[in-house]
Amino acid sequence: MQLIIRKVSRILQNHNNLTAVYALVVIIVAAIGLISIAAGEITFEKDQLYPKTINPDSPLNPYDRGGSPFVPADIKAQYPGNFPAIGYITGYLSPFATALIKISPYFGTTIVAHPGGILDEILYATRGLDTIVETSILFVAFTTAMFLFRRDEE
């Protein structure tokens, strides 16, 4: 008994084994996941927020969220009441983008990020806090990298 404890604690106390130990835990949990899928516990809920519709004829395909500039699109948000201007941002296209649509039927395939493209109100408004946190993470990571980089320079 004592030997086992010693042995385990010897593995645990080496910081180089940390990721390996954690990886093992993740593998165990993933195995539990497989079992619960087999048991039918994990089923896809078909009633999802912000469902994706694909309109192959739209020049904005596959990023067509519906709506046209200054006309709100139909959005299925969690709490639509919290954002009265819902649907407007998604519907908006810059004049330049509007012009391009008429020329190119494949405007959407450039993953255009015109407001109203990939960056719609999920990212801007209704779930904007996510994006704020995400940019803050990037900000902090860059600060760390730059701090170390610059300190090395001295």
Partner: peptide, 12 residues
Amino acid sequence: LSPYDAVTIQIG
């Protein structure tokens, strides 16, 4: 207990 043994027992 030695520090890491205490940890191991708690995990047990």
